[in-house]
Write a protein that binds this DNA or RNA. Structure first.
Length: 872
DNA sequence: CATCCAAACTCGGAGCCGCCTGC
DNA sequence: CGCAGGCGGCTCCGAGTTTGGAT
């Protein structure tokens, strides 16, 4: 499997440059042509760009960095691989002329599909080989493993345990309930802060004292961490807490009406809106310049809801608003913009103060008390009213999201805890004491009737535990994966359609990391996953190649060209065959429920999404193993890590839109590199003249490279280029000088000093020109002057330095280019077992901070202590 | 020290999956 | 009694905003 996975990663033929979120932003000009991908259900969706440009296939994501020049790099359209099948393959394809024939041949090729057997075998051998024998795999496991075991322990055990807790309960003062098994954690009291700093403040110097206090505090905080992962048992998972105290949700401040002068205009006249209607109009006005306001569905839904509000709260001046087109929101929009810039321009101190105030108001909501422990709450703010921003072609986008009041909220809290008082008038809709769930508050959102919750933060013990369980479950799949694969591979030829469909679907879920694909309703965006794949989402190409093109979760386009097992190819032919057409499900005998049920028979708790976690993590681990240079530099190691991360992101189809200044940014880097190259060239020349052996620049260059073993770069630094570069640099410096001059004067004016005379500026410019004129005369000659470089050794050292700088810069650029539309964060947060990273860090002596951000560190405390030999 | 830009974090919508319920 | 459909609870997801580091 290890090997196969890689193959898949590489086999993908070039992706057409995804029209990033093309459907989300139909108006976006960057997504070019579209080919109809619709179904009879969701009709207007168009999506996919199809490029006519043929292009190489087996060359994914990597666009070789070229010279920037203008906005040249917009990859227009992608390349659907229009590869001409090799002759031999054509013949093969002829084997599958039509469904009938295929059907007839169904039973035939059982032999051909256990092609996967070697796969698993490989995986096994490789796995063990690198896993550094059995015990290394088991030892760390055993350590952490008390949990998995415990998890499976009968519920009774947990019960006993929680009963035990009661013994401790009495001891905690404030909460009058106590932590579970306090043995391992050192300190639990939430009210620490006050004492320690003051105690430690005996230090002489103030700064020192402060520092010390800080250190001490940190230390203390560390001590306080509840190391639940070191505890024996986690309980049976039904009871999530025994005591719980929190403040409920924080409501946004009530709406304040706009200044009198700021009005909605209707048919050219200002309207005196009711305050309720004004708020809603404001929601739209604020989004006037976004793509949303240009979206028909969005506007339609907004206006419907707006009119409903108007009906309840009519304009005070009797205006009747019935035509969206006649509404003019610009005055409101402008006002918001003004406010925004005003706010931005506020002095830093004022900003700080405002923030401090806000923090203070929110402070008590930030933490809750779970089993007596202070734990961070996730999103404690009630979602403010606004317009629903559905993703993709969501039928409800633009609808008005109501303002919540306490009556809408259900609070879940410990029986003995004090019930919080809402920060706005009203009382909680309901207060319950359900210790089998993890949410603190809950309400129903009015758009789709979906439930919303307040949960603990990602770094909390509750979240951490379930996160770890998720990865443990994925690891458990390792023990069953061979069996599962053998099974679905053999069933690819089953005579029972249902089995065959299930096997094929599983193949996709496993190999392509597709999501399960639940059915969706009419009131939701038309997106699909494996089971909901329709006729038009998969097309067949000669020689066992499938083209997937559909919108997945969040309306992210999934476009991949994949070479599959011949039998899978045949199966898709069959499933698409006969009387099916666009809009029909490919897997009509399989549902997410049936798949999960089936999977559960291999392993308790096994579901489709476990495959995503498993494959992501195992691929990551294996890619790391492969790519990490054993004694490379830090940069190289980090690059390898990144690359492994990227492979996973590609597998999981985690995308991001290309940032709008990507092109400019690349150009800038390119320019920098060119600058360095020029310097490089000059220095080589200088070296030449210094040695006075060779006279030709190129010869010197070559000579140098030969001697010092420095790689030839495809440098396009020729004389002509140097000329433009120098001219441009000259321009830039002159601009800079002008700017500086103005600034200096502003400063002087502010300080009441006399302004600089214009000739000072001219002087400065002259200096720049002088310098560049000199360069110009030197251009193409051997005469080079670079200050500071005297001896041959110095020059050589400088050249060497430049060379590595060029290399690292270029490397950075490649990395950036490759990653411009791949989002690495999602997999890092959700799919990659953090212990793979921590073990790798230890093994290769890389500081974890280079890979995990602060929040990630907070999220994964449980992964920090594994040994370097730990394997997923 | 201001400015610029990328990384980090916040936000809230989307999807998965188990369980309950009602036919 | 079986199972489909809906709901509850939780993970996952990229955009948008904020932060902070480089220069």
């Amino acid at each position: 499997m290890v090997i196969r996975r890689t193959e898949i990663l590489y086999n993908r033929t070039a992706q057409p440059k995804r029209p990033k979120r093309s459907n989300t932003k139909p108006s976006s000009s960057t997504s070019p042509k579209t080919k109809p991908v619709h179904t009879d259900k969701s009709r207007k969706r168009k999506a996919v760009e199809m490029s006519s440009s043929s292009s190489s296939d087996d060359e994914p994501l990597l666009t070789s960095p070229k010279k920037p020049k203008a906005g040249s790099r917009r990859p227009n359209g992608g390349a659907v691989s229009a590869k001409a099948p090799p002759a031999g393959e054509v013949a093969k394809a002829a084997v599958l002329p039509n469904t009938a024939v295929v059907k007839a041949s169904e039973e035939d090729d059982v032999s051909s599909d256990d092609d996967d057997a070697p796969l698993t075998a490989k995986a096994k051998s490789k796995g063990t080989a690198q896993a550094d024998p059995s015990d290394s795999e088991d030892a760390p496991l055993a350590k952490a493993a008390s949990k998995p075991k415990a998890k499976r322990a009968p519920p009774k055990k947990a019960k006993e345990e929680s009963d035990d807790d009661d013994v401790f309960r009495a001891s905690t003062s404030k909460a009058k309930k106590a932590p579970k098994t306090p043995a391992k954690k050192t300190k639990v009291e939430p009210k620490e802060e006050s004492q320690s700093p003051s105690k430690s403040s005996q230090s002489p110097s103030k700064a020192k004292a402060e520092k010390k206090a800080k250190a001490k505090k940190e230390e203390e905080e560390q001590e306080e961490i509840h190391k639940w992962w070191e505890q024996e048992a986690l309980g049976d998972g039904t009871q999530k807490w025994s005591t719980l105290e929190h403040q409920g949700v924080l409501f946004p401040p009530p709406y304040e009406s706009l200044p009198k002068a700021v009005k909605l205009y209707y048919d050219g006249e200002s309207v005196n809106l009711s305050i309720e209607a004004e708020e809603v109009a404001g929601f739209f006005a604020a989004m006037l310049e976004t793509d949303h306001a240009k979206d028909a569905t969005f506007c339609k839904n907004f206006f419907t809801d707006f009119k409903a509000v108007l009906a309840r709260h009519p304009p005070l001046d009797g205006t009747v608003i019935s035509d969206f087109e006649k509404c003019d929101f610009t005055k409101m929009y402008n006002y918001f913009e003004e406010e925004r810039t005003k706010k931005k321009a506020l002095p830093a101190a004022a900003k700080k103060e405002a923030k401090a105030e806000k923090d203070k108001a929110e402070a008590k909501y930030v933490y809750c008390l779970l089993d007596g422990r202070k734990e961070k709450v996730g999103n404690f703010r009630a979602e403010p009213p606004g317009l629903f921003r559905g993703r993709g072609d969501h039928p409800r986008k633009g609808a008005l999201k109501h303002r919540l009041s306490p009556g809408d909220i259900t609070i879940n809290i410990g029986k003995e805890a004090q019930i919080p008082v809402p920060n706005v008038p009203g009382t909680w809709g309901k207060v319950i004491h359900d210790d089998t769930v993890t949410w603190l508050a809950h309400w129903k959102e009015n758009i789709n009737g979906n439930a919303k919750y307040v949960f603990l933060a990602a770094g909390s013990s509750l979240k951490g535990q379930s996160d770890m369980q998720k990865f443990e479950k994925a690891r458990e799949l390792k023990n069953h994966i061979d069996r599962v694969r053998d099974d679905y591979n053999s069933k690819l030829t089953s005579r029972v359609t249902q089995e065959r469909q299930m096997a094929t679907a599983l193949y996709f879920i496993d190999k392509l990391a597709l999501r399960a694909g639940n059915e969706k309703g009419d009131d939701e965006a038309d997106t699909v996953g494996c089971c909901s794949l329709r006729y038009e989402h998969v097309t067949l190409q000669p020689t066992d190649r499938l083209v997937f093109d559909f919108l997945g979760k969040d309306s992210i386009r999934y476009y991949k060209v994949v070479d599959v097992e011949p039998q899978v190819y045949k199966n898709i032919r069959i499933f698409k065959g006969d009387n099916k057409t666009e809009g029909d499900a490919i897997f009509d005998r399989v549902t997410t429920t049936s798949i999960n049920k089936h999977l559960n028979s291999y392993m308790k708790g096994l579901t489709a999404k476990v495959f995503r976690t498993y494959n992501a993590s195992i691929t990551f681990q294996q890619q790391l193993e492969e790519r990490t240079p054993k004694d490379g530099s830090m940069i190289e190691k980090l690059a390898a890590y990144n690359e492994a991360n990227r492979m996973v992101a590609i597998l999981c189809n985690h995308q991001k839109s290309v940032s709008k200044n990507h092109g400019a940014s690349m150009e800038k880097m390119e320019n920098q590199v060119s600058g360095i190259r020029l310097m490089f060239l000059l220095l080589t020349r200088l070296l030449t003249s210094c040695r006075s052996e060779l006279s030709s620049t190129n010869a010197a260059n070559l000579e140098y490279r030969k001697q010092e073993n420095i790689a030839e770069d495809e440098s396009d630094v020729d004389d002509e280029w140097i000329a433009t570069f120098e001219d441009e640099s000259r321009e830039r410096e002159i601009e800079k000088a002008k700017k500086k001059f103005e600034k200096d004067n502003e400063k002087k004016a502010a300080e009441g000093e006399e302004e600089l005379k214009p000739d000072v500026l001219e002087d400065r410019i002259a200096k720049v020109n002088e310098e560049y004129d000199r360069l110009k005369t030197e251009r193409g000659t051997d005469k080079v002057e670079i200050k500071g470089k005297k001896t041959e050794e110095q020059i050589l050292a400088a050249i060497e330095k430049l060379d590595t700088r060029i290399k690292t810069e270029k490397f950075k650029m490649e990395d950036k280019e490759k990653g411009k539309e791949v989002s690495l964060g999602t997999s890092k947060i959700n799919y990659l077992d953090p212990r793979i990273t921590t073990a790798w860090c230890k093994k290769y002596n890389v500081p974890i901070e280079k890979l995990f951000s602060k929040t990630l560190m907070v999220k994964f405390p449980w992964a920090m202590e594994v040994e370097d030999s730990w394997v997923f």
